[in-house]
Amino acid sequence: MPRDEELIGESPEDGQISISRDVIATIAGLAATDVAGVAPPKGGTMPRGEAVRRLVEVELAEGRVKLALKVGVLHGHAIQEVAQGLQTKVKNEVEKMTALPVDEVDVEVVRVVFPEEGRRKDRFS
């Protein structure tokens, strides 16, 4: 049964430390936006701040994390390399910041994006 938060530490003196699914999604989303070649999956500009969590689905079960990301890739970048870079960056960042082991980072590349596309939409919106 998936849970909304996971216990990551407990001591009789200090109490419990738990981390929510949204926090993990935000960490993973911010890490994803740092990877060169990653573009928003549905056009427009890349989400910023907490909105980046929309890119990520988080499964938490028995102290282990499974992540799934849907992204676009900027035209000119090798999709395979961008996806592998994304997996490495997201896994490292989530493990570093939460101390939870990340079992899998599934990446779905849904489109190729021209760099001008985002700028054009910005101008007209």
């Binding site: 499974k66 992540l67 890739v73 999709i79 395979q80 996806a83 592998q84 997996q87 490495t88 896994k91 079992d103 899998e104 980072v105 599934d106 990446v107 779905e108 590349v109 849904v110 489109r111 190729v112």
Partner: peptide, 13 residues
């Protein structure tokens, strides 16, 4: 399927 998870490139891409 890779060591760090699955990579799916959609047919549309």
């Amino acid at each position: 399927q890779g060591p760090k998870g699955m990579i799916l490139i959609t047919a549309d891409t």
